[in-house]
Nucleic acid binder design. Structure first.
Lengths: 195, 195, 195, 195
DNA sequence: TATGAATGAGGCTTCATTCAT
DNA sequence: CATGAATGAAGCCTCATTCAT
């Protein structure tokens, strides 16, 4: 994957065409610009991600099981990408965030990414809501809770990628699951908001 | 900050010079290439970050206080950047990670970034070690523990930045602190490594 | 011819493109760098030169006739270039030597030039060999002999070019032919090597 | 010598200053521009050359002795340059010719070089004149004769330099001397001007 | 529909020259 | 006198995009 390997700016249309086995000009039959290709990529990425997540969640029963599933899925997702021939395409997620940050908030690109990120966070919300209802979780603000989990998993993916020679993904997953699950289950609510 | 606003590739030397109030050629009196400027930036960024962290840690007493301090510092760091005139320069951290991922591992740039990241993780390690000694924390692998916390904070910074209109940083900090602190204190060790 | 007029360093790609009636970028469809263009030029120059020489030599009979032909050809070559619209492109030969001297011996450019020069000298060698066999020439070292003649003709071309207002090319050719031919035919061999 | 090593265009003022052990700005106390430095160099080069030649000629007696001396001197000059630490500065002669060819005839640079070249040819003329008077040489046009000899020696210097690994300078000198001296002494005059 | 040759805007970098000290 | 930091003009090269085939 050209953009993953080189970033949006350094990824050349010529390489993309080549990798796709088509001519350079043909690319413009399907996309109107380089940025357009990237946006399609972003959407494809998030679509695939949520599709997998949904399938996964359908299998869990209790909120705790579901949360556990999501954390485990995050690592499996990462692991599979890195193992497969598509491995090189993994860093696309960082490229997406990088572009989101750089791009003007008004651009189509920024919009597409924000849309994806929100959808990601949204996956967690109903699960957490169930947890609160079942009194498993304290009545924290659901959306903050979801953001923390989703964001933390992203950060972990990044740092694991950068230091994958030094860390074992399985053990990292266990540590993460421990901290997060325990953290969520014992967090005592927002009584300290005054600080 | 030119690179923060546009990324390494789109950040023009001309703009950097302009922002510094010097001529385009003058830039090359101090740096030998565009990449060289970026590396200096990376090093400056990490240096500043750790300088602040060290000062902060000196003030805490117990491991719990210190961990709390670090979590709070992460948000303060972020908040201050975003509030100040330097606000626009905050996204540099994402740009750094983005480049780390793209750059060949052999490049000076990659090296510099990895060095910074490791130093960041290393800040947490002695604190966690103390926690284990004091039997406050279970005997998890210290380095995995540290990575999780450091990485999670990075992910949070990113996502908060992207959705800063929708979230309140103070409340986000509280939620984060709750989850992490509780999670760390109640995590029950690696008994599940078999899974 | 841009390089002939200005030299390699001052010859701008933009001018080359312009002269060729194509866009600046199009140049890079055919050559990968400025130096690459120059190398192609060098090779074209020598190729053309030797092609003409070969045709010429086929027409002579005796060694003396052939040597005479070569000397005359050198001047004709020069004369034609200077008269034609290509006239301005003649100095390319000096540019070639100039670059040969400057360029590091390991460069492709240097190699290409040395190859050409040796080929030039080599044209003379079989002719001189025949002359020696026929006892017309004394048994001087053929390669030294060839170098002297080839080199001298190059020097003459240069100096004639610089002072072409003051000298008549026809008469210069006659003087040259006289001196060289007589010199070669009467040179008495290397008995003086002791000096 | 910076210009010899790199050519006029690639020779940097900074290097010249450095080699001279002075500051970059100081160069402009003595010369008004880069071209100005080069012109001074040209003049110094020719001055030195003719100074040596004059000394040499004073020692010869007969025209033949003098011509022999000049030919031998040319090689000695070359040899000494190449052997000495100044060796690297030899190619300056080719750089001079190269610039002469490129420069517009109206420039000061061109003028200076042409002046030098003419002076070089002029050294030969009185000697040849003596030879004609003494009936040793046929009544060829003196200036053409002189040009041929001077130019040929230049060409030899160039080619020897380029292939100095393959040729022995002493033997090259002998071959040259043989051909030229015999050629000059036996050339039968311009009766063939009709061709 | 598919192509890839042609294009030129744009950016990094070099370096002769200036000038305040 | 000597200096070298500062400068910006200038040039090589890249590459997204176009368009004739």
């Amino acid at each position: 994957m050209v953009f993953a390997r080189n970033g949006l700016e350094r990824g050349k249309i010529a390489d993309i065409a080549n990798e796709a086995g088509i001519g350079k000009g043909t690319v413009y039959e399907y996309f109107s610009s380089k940025e357009d290709i990237f946006i399609a990529l972003v959407e494809g990425f998030f679509t695939e991600m949520f599709h997998d997540m949904d399938a996964l969640l359908a299998m869990g029963e209790t909120p705790v099981e579901k949360i556990t599933s999501l954390i485990e899925y995050s690592f499996k997702f990462l692991e599979e990408y890195l193992d497969s021939e598509e491995g090189e395409s993994w860093p696309i997620i960082m490229e997406i965030f990088s572009q989101a940050i750089r791009a003007d908030a008004s651009t189509e690109m920024h919009q597409a990414i924000i849309r994806g990120v929100r959808a990601g966070v949204a996956v967690f919300e109903p699960i957490l809501q169930d947890g609160v209802k079942a009194s498993i979780l304290k009545p924290f603000d659901i959306d903050y809770f979801a953001l923390v989990v989703f964001a933390a998993l992203d950060g972990l993916a990044l740092h694991y990628y950068l230091q994958r020679e030094r860390f074992d993904i399985k053990e990292l997953m266990i540590t993460t699951r421990e901290i997060f699950l325990n953290g969520m289950l014992t967090a005592t609510g927002r009584k300290e908001l005054q600080s």
